[in-house]
């Protein structure tokens, strides 16, 4: 199987990186909590979630981060390396919600000497947003290193 490669040189700021939707079911949410070994009952126990003022069981943070990061590497192909993610929760995503993730490139640069582990790398920063029909769910700024053409 071959996989596409996105070169740093071909990326432009503002560029769309596509979108992805996932229907959130009780199984998906509790399964995600288990795949991430998260036992907080808010992710698998509806009664508990309702008591905690949620609409239903909610998607956990590691699960959300996984889905947002997936959009980034789906776009870049496996040559793109995740370097840094900044992750913010704005709302929630519950059973029955269709989670839609989309994003674009907000910055393109070469890591400077003062940027520590990013120095010298060909970098892009992506803004990735996740929404449900109820409103914004979470968003991330994801820094990736991409391969550069000679």
């Amino acid at each position: 199987m071959t996989h596409h490669i996105v070169y740093w040189d071909d990326v432009t700021e503002g560029q769309d990186i596509g979108s992805y939707s996932m229907q959130m079911t009780a199984v998906k949410i509790s399964g995600g909590a288990w795949a991430t070994r998260d036992t907080n009952p808010i992710h698998h126990d509806k009664d508990f979630a309702l008591k905690a003022q949620q609409r239903d069981m909610i998607v956990n943070i590691m699960h959300s981060e996984g889905i947002l990061s997936k959009l980034a590497t789906d776009w870049s192909g496996p040559e793109g390396e995740l370097k840094r993610t900044r992750f913010n929760i704005e709302g929630n995503c519950c059973v029955g919600d269709l989670m839609t993730v989309s994003g674009n490139v907000i910055r393109k640069w070469i890591g400077g000497e003062d940027e520590g582990f990013l120095a010298g790398l060909h970098l892009v920063e992506l803004q990735v947003n996740s929404v449900t029909p109820v409103g914004p769910f979470c968003n991330a700024q994801i820094t990736m290193a991409l391969p550069a053409k000679k």
Binding site: V27, G31, A33, W34, A35, T39, P41, H44, D45, K46
Partner: peptide, 17 residues
């Protein structure tokens, strides 16, 4: 508990609804 029910699905890999 619901907790153990879900644990069971993940540990047995039997995801029949």
């Amino acid at each position: 508990t619901h907790n153990r029910i879900i644990m069971g699905v993940c540990a047995t890999r039997d995801n029949f609804p």
